[in-house]
Design a protein around this nucleic acid. Structure first.
Lengths: 233, 233
DNA sequence: CCGATTACGCTACGAGTCGTAGCGTAAGAG
DNA sequence: CTCTTACGCTACGACTCGTAGCGTAATCGG
């Protein structure tokens, strides 16, 4: 199921196989523990007890809390990957926003995602794992939506492939970031009204950004890139 | 100096006063420890040692790691609150984006913010503290920017005060969320090019969203096809 | 059926952290 | 000077971590 980084065990043909049911039990127990305890108080021993598994079994499969939680959450994201064609770009955007918000409102994901991202700032391998297991799968939805919109004539086709990729990344960061921030930082609901306002904002931005200029791209040399870090450490 | 939630100690006129220098040393040591160790491995004992302070002193002032880190990070955000008038809405947006990104690229904030937000999903008091100490101060920049743009005639004035507030919240979530996501989740740089693309997206969205409709807000459950943007932009 | 191999459950362990209590001392307030 | 509070220090029980060792269970190749 999850087990994203198990490519490293290609040769294991003999011996007792690992219990697939233990995997399910462990990941489920991890999600349950996340809901009740939160990231900070979640312990490996507790997860093992809930799963009816020895603590050592956990460590045989995952290096630690971080990796375990990534896989536990990734399994949830696997469920929610389909998105129907709603006939218009606006409807598709609103749908993906509400859908993503619903996913984030689940207490398991809510707690875990931010914690894992935080840990990933020191652990590049963990970051890569998060991106491949969770982020990239969501990004696919943006690509699908754009393709549909282009077929409908709602968005202009891309001239440059590189620019298209950059644009898709931008849009994904805007959508996912806005929803996450609204929900987890501002702690306010992503209801249909908000989704509608957000979609309106995005639609106009997209229509313009795709068709080239419109508002002057700002004079470059005007100001330097330099900030004042005002170091305090 | 954060100390956001010390309103609860009004009556302490007698006795030895708390060392203000200890506060500075502790918060500085916390930031340094965050850089080196990250959230996960940061311990109260370590912070105390770095600050040259007894561990008990830490617990006399903060309930635990969460509260301590919030204040330590909030102090950083205090430094970076000014924003100059760059003459155009686009320039102001790009500036605030780059500025915010610079702040988030500092290893202290990078690590701490997400971790604290994660913990806040289980601790409403902590969430409120984060919002009042960090988020709301950033939100002020959005309000200032909008006011300037309205004075310049770049944005229409608001009819409804409630709608104006909702709109400001939306814009703030979009800006902050997008930058955070780009930087911490996608792990890609917020350079001038990205800021420019983002500003373009946002500018067109703003111009349209402010002037009322433009793209039909879509019917509720049974969504049909919508017309394309009326090109008022 | 039989060894070889691997996974599992269990126990135990040292190391490290947590948060608190107790004590004597330092520093302002009245 | 006395009262009150903060500080540094030490020590403590409780807990978590991650690992090691052991006997047992399951599966594969011959």
């Amino acid at each position: 199921m999850g087990k994203v980084a198990d490519m490293s065990t290609p040769a294991r043909r003999t011996g007792r196989p690992r219990s697939a049911e233990a995997d399910r039990a462990i990941l489920g127990a991890t999600r349950a523990a996340l809901v009740e305890l939160g990231w900070g108080k979640l312990t490996m021993g507790d997860v093992a007890a809930r799963a009816g598994v020895a603590k050592t079994t956990l460590y045989r499969r995952w290096a630690g809390k971080n990796e375990l939680v990534v896989d536990a959450v990734a399994a949830v994201f696997d469920e929610q990957l389909e998105v129907a064609d709603h006939g218009s770009l606006r409807a598709d955007i609103e749908d993906v926003v509400v859908r993503f918000a619903t996913l984030l409102e689940r207490p398991e994901t809510k707690t875990a995602l931010m914690a894992v991202v935080s840990e990933a700032t020191h652990d590049e391998a963990l970051g890569a794992r998060v991106r491949s297991a969770i982020v990239d799968r969501q990004k696919r939805l943006v690509l699908i939506g754009r393709q549909r919109a282009q077929l409908r004539g709602e968005l202009p086709g891309e001239e440059d492939a590189a620019a298209a990729a950059r644009n898709a990344d931008l849009i994904f960061d805007v959508i996912a970031g806005s929803v996450v921030h609204r929900l987890l930082v501002s702690a306010e609901p992503v209801d249909r009204e908000w989704a509608c306002s957000f979609a309106t904002l995005l639609l106009h931005g997209l229509a313009a950004a795709g068709s080239g200029a419109g508002i002057a791209p700002a004079p470059e040399p005007a100001r330097g890139h330099d900030q004042k870090p005002a170091g305090s450490v």
